[in-house]
Simulated scan of single mutants.
Amino acid sequence: MAAEATQDPVTDRSDVDGRPPALRLTGLHKAFGANIAVNHVDLTVPQGSFFGLVGPNGAGKTTALSMAVGLLRPDEGSSEVFGVEVWKDPVQARTMMGVLPDGLAMPERLTGRELLTFIGQLRGIEPAVLAERIDELLDVMELHEAETTLVVDYSTGMRKKIGLATALLHGPRLLVLDEPFEAVDPVSAAALKAILVRFVESGGSVVLSSHVMALVEQLCDTVAVMAKGRVVADGPLAEVRGEQTLEQTFVRLVGGDEHAGRGLSWLAS
């Protein structure tokens, strides 16, 4: 049986061992006119977890993550990264996290190496350290052969990889990734998965938003399901999905069962 949410705050699992959670959202709320995009969301991401955030289009995932990392100011509520409030101490909070937003805009007339150099200089990374990290990132991302290619000429998979490289460059403890595998080919996806798994194995924490249930089941140990701006279930993956697949549980929780088996009348034989 899935761990379905109630009106009570989500249990803070990370405080059990005395460590603050990697990310904690408390009463996060955002409305655009009469449309409530995120409705007083409480969510806790334990340290060292690979956390999946799933939901249908319009569920509020991107809006919630944008507020969580400091890209969009909430109407109410707070976001903490390792105990540091994002909107009260944004500089310290942002040094501990790397962010890959959906549809990330990048300077397109730079090469991959130039882009990483520019980002590293903005972050104040020492030149020798920066050069070493860029070499390693280009190697791990398999972008060395394209390091002289302008970003404008990158494929979708290459853009995702260079975007992840910019998020990892300063050595964050938390990665927040919004649809990092969307429109990415299987080879690039495999490389990205391997990098993220190694990051978590080395002590990092990842928050991953995705529409692909099989991907979340493959990578994540903890999951939350959003629908209509609310968290309707959260907890360890095995707890949330119960005896079903995550996709089956997801469809049931977001009300998709009512459309199952329906066809188009004019296509009937």
Rank of each mutant, 00 (worst) to 15 (best):
Q7L: 14
D8M: 13
D8A: 15
S14T: 09
D17Q: 08
R24G: 05
L25F: 08
L25Y: 08
L25A: 14
T26I: 12
G27K: 09
G27T: 09
A31I: 02
V38C: 09
T44I: 10
V45F: 09
P46W: 09
P46N: 07
Q47F: 01
Q47C: 11
Q47H: 04
G52S: 05
V54W: 00
G58A: 05
G60N: 04
T63G: 08
T63P: 05
T63S: 14
D75E: 14
G77L: 08
E80M: 10
F82L: 12
V84I: 15
E85F: 04
V86W: 02
V86K: 05
V86H: 11
A93N: 06
M96G: 02
G98R: 02
V99I: 15
D102R: 04
P107Y: 13
L110F: 10
R113N: 03
G120R: 01
A131E: 13
A131N: 08
A131H: 09
D139R: 14
V140T: 15
E147T: 12
V152P: 00
T156W: 06
G157A: 13
I162N: 05
A165H: 07
L168H: 11
L169Y: 06
H170D: 00
R173P: 11
V176Y: 07
P180T: 03
E182W: 01
A183S: 13
K193G: 01
V197M: 08
R198V: 01
F199H: 09
V200E: 06
G203V: 07
G204Q: 00
G204I: 02
V207E: 02
L208A: 01
S209H: 00
H211R: 03
L215Y: 01
C220D: 05
C220N: 03
T222Y: 04
V223H: 01
A227G: 00
V232H: 11
G235H: 02
E239H: 08
E243D: 14
T245N: 11
L246M: 11
E247R: 11
F250C: 05
V251I: 15
L253H: 04
G255Q: 06
H259Q: 12
R262P: 03
R262C: 04
W266A: 12
